[in-house]
């Protein structure tokens, strides 16, 4: 029944995507390339997603596709692209939820092998700032989560495709044709589409940037470490799994990293400032 299938490994959770039409797997495969787990390895995914042409699920409209997760329908929409958002969002949620490492809601880039994290809530502009950094020569680790390895205490890259709003694409000066339109406000781009390399699989965190959007000229100044610690705990996805460990880890990260407060209005200008100041710090 399946014309194509592929396995992915995201933060230790295995996924399999299978499709009744090979072309339905092309875009997920491209966007999730950093998580490729060897193609047809025969390894069973912990979660299986199936993309079926609408004709196979009793929907007559041509071009319709349905996405199922472990046999439960997630989405039914026109064409494979409309299903992609549901697929990627669900995979991301599961990967982060099931991650056994300490994970914080943050954008993460690196330069010279040293990590720079922007802990922030959803909607605070961390993806746009992350993308702006990639355009300024930083390597990409994640626009979603700073993950700290339980084994090595290093930062683990999680390079999911960046979800950019129309506003973000305009601010970044991106041609919308460079991104995968989702039929609504957001679209996905990979680091390579922004001309960026991926960060090393694991690297040390050197800088924590507490970013505040809504200012005019960009400015960067040292900030108290305890503010970074509070942000790391407040924005953690999973501190509740081992509260004491999360507490000690957040303290260590905030102590060892340089902590900055970035005020900015233009993400590109902010990324240039970071590139200039952090490279010499």
């Amino acid at each position: 029944m399946w014309a194509a299938e592929q396995d992915f490994l995201m933060l230790g959770t295995r996924f399999r995507i299978q499709a009744t039409h090979a072309e339905h797997l092309e875009e997920p495969s491209r966007l999730l390339d950093p998580f490729d787990y060897g193609g047809r390895t025969g390894v069973r995914g912990r979660h299986t997603f199936s993309i079926a042409g609408g004709d196979l699920v009793g929907v007559r409209e041509p071009g319709t596709a349905a996405v199922f997760r472990d046999c439960q329908r997630l989405h039914l929409g026109e064409g494979p692209d409309a299903s992609l958002d549901a697929l990627l969002a669900t995979m991301n949620r599961l990967a982060v939820e099931e991650c056994r490492d300490f994970a914080v809601h943050a954008g993460v880039v690196s330069i010279g092998g040293v990590g720079v994290a922007f802990p922030a809530e959803s909607g605070d502009g961390k993806t746009t700032l992350t993308a702006a950094c990639l355009l300024q020569g930083f390597a990409y680790a994640s626009d979603e989560a700073m993950v700290v390895s339980a084994d090595s205490n290093a930062i683990v890259r999680y390079p999911k495709p960046l979800a950019l709003s129309q506003w973000s694409r305009n601010v970044l000066g991106m041609d919308t044709r460079e991104s995968t339109e989702m039929g609504h406000a957001e679209s996905y781009v990979t680091a390579s589409q922004l001309g960026a390399e991926l960060a090393d699989p694991e690297f040390e965190l050197g800088h924590i940037v507490l970013a505040e959007y809504g200012h005019g000229e960009s400015s960067l100044e040292q900030a108290p470490a305890h503010e970074a610690m509070a942000a790391l705990l407040r924005l953690s996805f999973n501190h509740y799994k081992d509260g004491e460990r999360a507490f000690r880890l957040a303290a260590r990260l905030a102590t060892d990293a340089q902590v900055w407060r970035l005020r900015y209005g233009d993400p590109i200008q902010a990324a240039q400032l970071l590139r200039r100041e952090i490279s010499v710090a």
Partner: peptide
């Protein structure tokens, strides 16, 4: 109660 110091400040 567990305490730790972060750059001179206590948490």
């Amino acid at each position: 109660v567990i305490e730790t110091e972060v750059a001179g400040d206590v948490s």
